[in-house]
């Protein structure tokens, strides 16, 4: 039986969240209604505002409600260096590490020929526009270490190299605090291929 009451509708609506099944959706709905009406109102308003106003940054394609995101607009960032990542979450991860001071470019995915995702779908025409401004000196390829991530990195590297800009790929290897015995063979291959003189 379909519950078409307001509560029923709320429970169904909450199920669009990742990892939320009928049980958790019900728990969330009752929590918001019984214990936290203010929180519920704030959630509703913010969600509605965000859904209406958040778009993509014209320069790096990340999610933002501004035309140019805060990172791209920040004058303190190194504009000669662009780091290419797959998802906005990757930007957050790199920012948390605090090691990088340049700009980003967010693909919102990766090349996946078998799914029909080509260069246009991941915004590479926009990246070309950015590269052709002539300010960028280095492009760091920080796509995932999956075959699609590698293919994407390779494709962009060719594009970047043709323009006389230096493409670099982030290193793969031993995790910090990792014991060699438990590291998988694929990672070890990379770790050996990318070894450095000490």
């Amino acid at each position: 039986m379909i519950d078409d009451s307001l509560i029923g509708q709320l429970i169904t609506a909450l199920r669009c969240l990742p990892g939320v099944g009928p049980k958790s959706a019900q728990r969330m709905a009752f929590h918001l209604l019984e214990r936290d009406r203010t929180g519920a109102r704030r959630l509703a308003q913010t969600l509605s505002l965000a859904a209406d106003n958040v778009g993509h940054c014209v320069s790096c394609r990340t999610l933002t409600e501004l035309e140019t995101c805060r990172l791209c607009a920040n004058n303190g960032r190194d504009r000669t260096c662009v780091c290419v990542v797959e998802m906005p979450g990757d930007v957050q991860a790199i920012e948390r590490s605090g090691t990088y001071k340049g700009l980003y470019f967010v693909l919102m995915g990766h090349l996946s020929p078998l799914d029909g995702i080509g260069p246009r779908e991941i915004g590479l025409d926009q990246l070309i526009v950015n590269l052709d401004t002539g300010i960028i000196k280095e492009v760091i390829l920080a796509t995932n270490s999956t075959v699609e991530g590698e293919a994407t990195a390779h494709y962009i590297a060719e594009m970047v190299r043709k323009r006389g800009i230096k493409p670099t790929r982030i290193a793969h290897g031993m995790p910090l605090g990792g014991e060699l015995e438990y590291v998988d063979g694929g990672t070890l291959q990379y770790a050996f291929a990318g070894r450095k003189e000490v």
Binding site: V147, E150, A151, H154, G185, G186, Q189, Y190
Partner: peptide, 10 residues
Amino acid sequence: GGAHLGGRAL
């Protein structure tokens, strides 16, 4: 264990 394919081979 397979070697990693790179670039064009990929």
